[in-house]
Write a protein that binds this DNA or RNA. Structure first.
Length: 706
DNA sequence: CCTCAGACTTGGAACAATATTT
DNA sequence: AAATATTGTTCCAAGTCTGAGG
C-alpha cells in the first residue's frame, strides 16, 4: 500500500480513524477488492486529545434558547475514539426474534408512467384501513420492474417527466387569524396602544426574548424596521431602545404555563378538535391511491429565523393568504375550496410533470418557493428515494475509473481540468457538498467549489486543514492527509490570492457536475455523499457484527451510524442537560469505586489470616471468603468499565447527529437486510415514521449488499 | 455558455410524546 | 404524581440540481 490516503496510525480498532482505507485513491492499480470503501475519513478530526481544538465548535444558531449552554461555540466534541459497543443501558426489551420484516407487503414500486397502478398496498404499517377504503378502483396496467422503467424514463423520458395521471387533494390549511391579547407593552415607561396588527408583530419579538436572536443586532434592526412600517411614521414608537416588551413576554409565559397545567382530558379534547380540522387535508389521492400529504399547513407569520449570520434574520415573514397560493390539481378534479371566505387562490394549475400540490412565494425571498408536497411515505417520494440509492450503487461500478481519472488529472496542464480533478477528489474523499454560489443576502457559507483560500491551510508535508462554515453554518473542521499532487495543487491554487478568493477559481458546480456526468450518467457531486455513507454502513455492519446480544448488535449499528454522521459532518448542539448527565455518570462511577476499594480492603484483611469464622465483630454480616470477595470486586470493576465506556460514548457523541444520515443517506435496504440476517426487530432501528418512509425497502432479502 | 426560475432533497432545532427517575 | 430525560415528529431554512430561454 503505498501512499495511502489515510494516515491513521496504526491501530485498527479504535483508532482514530474510521476507515483506514487502503484502497486506491492514489495510484490507480490496487486490488479492487478494496474499493468499495469510502475514502472518507477524518484524520485529525478524530484524533486524540489534542482535539479539543479540533472538531468542535458547533456553531449554534442564535436562536437556541436554553439559557444554559449559553456559550455558543463551546467546546464540543473531542476525539472520537471509537470504543467498543458495550451496551450501555439496559433496558432489556424482550427480544422478539424473528424479524417480521418479511411481513411487509410488497413495496409498490409503481412506475410513474401513466395510469395508476393498482396496488393499494400501503407501506408497512397501519393504515391499511384507510388506504383500502376504496379510494381507487381503477385497475390499470401495473408495470413492475421499477428499476428499469424508471431509469429509462429519467434518461430519455419518453413521456417526459410525467409524475401522475390523476391528482386529488383538498388544498392547504391556513393558520388561525391573530387573536389580540391586549397586553400593553411599555414605551419609554408608558403603556402604548397598538392595533392588533402592530401587537402581533410586537408579540413575535417579545416571545423570543430568551433566544439568542433577541440580542443580535441584525435581528433587532430587521425586526424594528419591519415593525415600524406597520406602526406608521407617526407612531410614538421611534426608538427600539425605549421599547419594553416585558409585559408581553410575561403574558406569554403565563399562557405557556396555563397550557401546561391543562388536564389530560382537556389536552385530548384539544387534540381531537385539531385532528378533526385537519382531517380533510391529510390525504391526497394520486393515481387512485390514497397518499399522505406532507405539509398542508401554510406557514404562519413570524420573524424570520435565518441561520448563522443571515442578513435577513428578524425580518417579518408576513401572513400568507389564499391569493398567494397556487394550487396544482388533476384536470377535471374538483378544485379545493378556498377555506377563507371571500378570498380565492392565486392560480390553479394542472401540471402533472411536477409533484407539488401547492406553492407560494417565500415572503422573505420573493424568488424562493414554498411547496406543499406529498409525505415521505408516499410512493412518489419512495420511488425517487429508491432511485437515489440505485444511482449511488451504480457509482460503485465507476468509482475505480473515476479515481484513476482524476488522479491522472492532478497534474494536468489544463487548469480547469486540474481543478475539477482536485475538487472531485475532495468530494469523493471527504464527502463535501458541491458548493453552489450564494447570494449576497444569504449567510456566508461554502461547499467544495466555493471554498475560499482562508478555509484551507496547507500543512507540510501533505496535509490540508479545512475550516469553513457549511450548510446551515455548521462548521467543518478537519485535517486530512492527501496525496502529494493534491497538496501541491491546492497550494498552487491558493498562491498569491486573497483570503476571500475562491480556491477553485476556474470552476463551479455546473462544470464539476458536467464533468461527473461524463464519467457516469446522472452522476453529480451529492451522489458521492450517498455513496460514501451507504458504503460505510454496509462495510461496517458486515465486518463487525458478530453474535451477541440484541443490545450489542444495536450498539454496533449505532457505531456505524455515528461513523457516517461524522463523515457527513452532521452535528447537533450539545444538549443542555449534557453536563449534568456527565456529572451523574461520574458520580456513579465514583460510588462504585468506593465500593470496590472497600471490598479490596476487606479482601486484604481476609487474606491476612482471618478465616471467615473468627473475628471480633459479632456482627451478623457474614464474612466472605477471599474468592467471593474477588468475584465481587471483579464484578464491580466490570461495571465501572462499562460505565466509563458509556461515559466516553456519551461525551464523544454529544455533537453528532445520527438522524440526518439515517433518513437521507443510508440505503434502508442495508439496514433491513442486516436486521433480517441478525434477527433484530427492525423497529429497534427505525421509528414508525421512518419505517413508513422506507416501505419500499422492507422486502429486500437478507442477502442484500449495497 | 449563462442566467435564473423552478423543483426537490437535505438539515438542525423546536416541539411533542414517551419513558424513566424521583 | 411530578420532574426529567430521551426519542420521535414537525417545522421551515438551506442546500443541490435541472431545464428553459436568451
Amino acid at each position: 500500500m503505498a501512499p495511502t490516503v489515510c494516515l491513521s496510525d496504526g491501530d485498527d480498532e479504535d483508532g482514530p480513524i474510521s476507515f483506514k482505507r487502503t484502497a486506491s485513491v492514489k495510484s490507480e492499480q490496487e486490488d479492487d477488492s478494496e474499493d468499495e470503501k469510502p475514502l472518507a475519513m477524518r484524520t485529525t478530526r478524530l484524533t486524540s486529545n489534542a482535539s479539543s481544538t479540533s472538531r468542535n465548535s458547533i456553531k449554534r444558531r442564535p436562536g437556541d434558547s436554553n439559557t444554559g449552554t449559553s456559550s455558543p461555540l463551546k467546546k464540543a466534541k473531542h476525539s472520537a475514539i471509537e470504543r467498543e459497543p458495550k451496551a450501555a443501558d439496559a433496558h432489556d426489551n424482550k427480544i422478539p426474534l424473528a424479524p417480521r420484516l418479511t411481513s411487509v407487503k410488497p413495496s409498490k414500486t409503481k412506475p410513474p408512467a401513466k395510469n395508476a397502478t393498482k396496488n393499494k398496498k400501503k407501506s408497512p404499517s397501519s393504515f391499511t384501513k384507510d388506504s383500502q377504503k376504496g379510494v381507487e378502483m381503477k385497475a390499470k396496467k401495473t408495470v413492475r420492474n421499477s428499476r428499469l422503467s424508471k431509469a429509462m424514463k429519467v434518461r430519455q423520458g419518453s413521456g417526459s417527466g410525467k409524475k401522475w395521471s390523476t391528482l386529488e387533494h383538498n388544498g392547504v390549511m391556513f393558520p388561525p387569524p391573530y387573536m389580540p391579547h391586549g397586553v400593553k407593552m411599555l414605551y419609554n415607561g408608558q403603556p402604548v396602544d397598538l392595533t392588533p396588527e402592530q401587537e402581533e408583530v410586537a408579540t413575535m419579538f417579545a416571545v423570543m426574548r430568551d433566544t439568542e436572536y433577541a440580542s443580535k443586532e441584525t435581528f433587532i434592526n430587521n425586526f424594528f424596521t419591519d415593525w415600524r412600517k406597520i406602526l406608521g411614521k407617526t407612531h410614538i414608537i421611534k426608538k427600539f431602545e425605549l421599547c419594553d416588551f416585558t409585559t408581553i413576554y410575561e403574558w406569554h409565559l403565563r399562557e405557556k404555563e396555563n397550557k401546561k397545567q391543562m388536564t389530560t382530558e382537556e389536552k385530548k379534547a384539544l387534540r381531537d378538535e385539531k385532528g378533526k380540522r385537519e382531517e380533510k387535508y391529510l390525504w391526497a389521492i394520486v393515481d387512485g391511491v390514497k397518499e399522505k400529504v406532507g405539509n398542508f399547513r401554510v406557514e404562519p407569520p413570524g420573524l424570520f429565523r435565518g441561520r448563522g449570520e443571515h442578513p435577513k434574520m428578524g425580518r417579518l415573514k408576513r401572513r400568507i393568504r389564499p391569493n398567494d397560493i397556487t394550487i396544482n390539481i388533476g384536470k377535471g378534479t374538483p378544485v379545493p375550496v378556498c377555506p377563507i371566505p371571500g378570498e380565492s387562490w392565486k392560480e390553479v394549475k394542472h401540471d402533472n410533470t411536477v409533484t407539488w400540490l401547492a406553492f407560494w412565494n417565500d415572503p422573505i425571498n420573493q424568488k424562493d418557493f414554498k411547496y406543499v408536497f406529498l409525505a415521505a411515505s408516499s410512493s412518489l417520494k419512495g420511488q425517487s428515494d429508491k432511485e437515489k440509492y440505485e444511482k449511488a450503487r451504480k457509482l460503485k461500478d465507476h468509482i475505480d475509473n473515476i479515481r484513476v481519472n482524476y488522479t491522472k488529472d492532478f497534474r494536468s496542464k489544463d487548469q480547469v481540468k486540474k481543478q475539477i480533478a482536485v475538487a472531485t477528489y475532495l468530494v469523493d474523499k471527504l464527502a463535501l457538498r458541491a458548493g453552489n454560489e450564494k447570494d449576497e443576502d444569504e449567510a456566508d457559507t461554502v461547499g467544495c467549489c466555493t471554498l475560499k483560500v482562508e478555509n484551507v491551510t496547507c500543512l507540510p508535508p501533505n496535509k490540508l486543514q479545512f475550516d469553513f462554515l457549511g450548510k446551515d453554518s455548521i462548521r467543518y473542521l478537519n485535517t486530512v492527509e492527501v496525496e502529494l499532487p493534491v497538496y501541491e495543487a491546492v497550494k498552487e491554487f491558493c498562491a498569491g490570492k486573497n483570503k476571500g478568493d475562491n480556491v477553485f477559481a476556474e470552476i463551479d458546480t455546473i462544470k464539476l457536475n458536467a464533468h461527473l456526468k461524463e464519467l457516469m450518467p446522472g452522476l453529480t457531486a451529492k451522489v458521492f455523499r450517498t455513496y460514501n455513507a451507504s458504503v460505510t454502513l454496509d462495510a461496517m455492519l458486515n465486518k463487525e457484527t458478530e453474535d451477541g446480544t440484541l443490545l450489542q448488535k444495536i450498539s454496533i449499528y449505532k457505531r456505524a451510524n455515528k461513523e457516517v454522521a461524522i463523515i457527513c459532518n452532521h452535528q447537533r448542539a450539545v444538549s443542555k442537560s449534557h453536563d449534568s448527565q456527565m456529572a451523574k455518570l461520574n458520580e456513579k462511577i465514583d460510588e462504585l469505586k468506593v465500593q470496590r476499594d472497600g471490598l479490596k480492603a476487606e479482601l486484604e484483611k481476609a487474606k491476612k489470616g482471618k478465616r471467615p469464622g473468627d473475628d471480633k465483630d459479632g456482627s451478623r454480616k457474614k464474612k466472605l471468603t477471599p474468592e467471593m470477595l474477588e468475584n465481587k470486586i471483579s464484578g464491580i470493576e466490570a461495571k465501572i468499565e462499562g460505565m466509563v465506556i458509556t461515559k466516553n460514548n456519551t461525551e464523544e457523541s454529544k455533537t453528532v447527529a445520527l438522524g440526518t444520515s439515517k433518513i437521507n443517506y443510508l440505503d434502508p435496504r442495508i439496514t433491513v437486510a442486516w436486521c433480517k440476517t441478525h434477527e433484530i426487530p427492525i423497529n429497534k432501528i427505525f421509528s414508525k415514521t421512518i419505517l413508513e418512509k422506507f416501505g419500499w425497502a422492507m422486502d429486500v432479502g437478507p442477502g442484500f449488499r449495497f
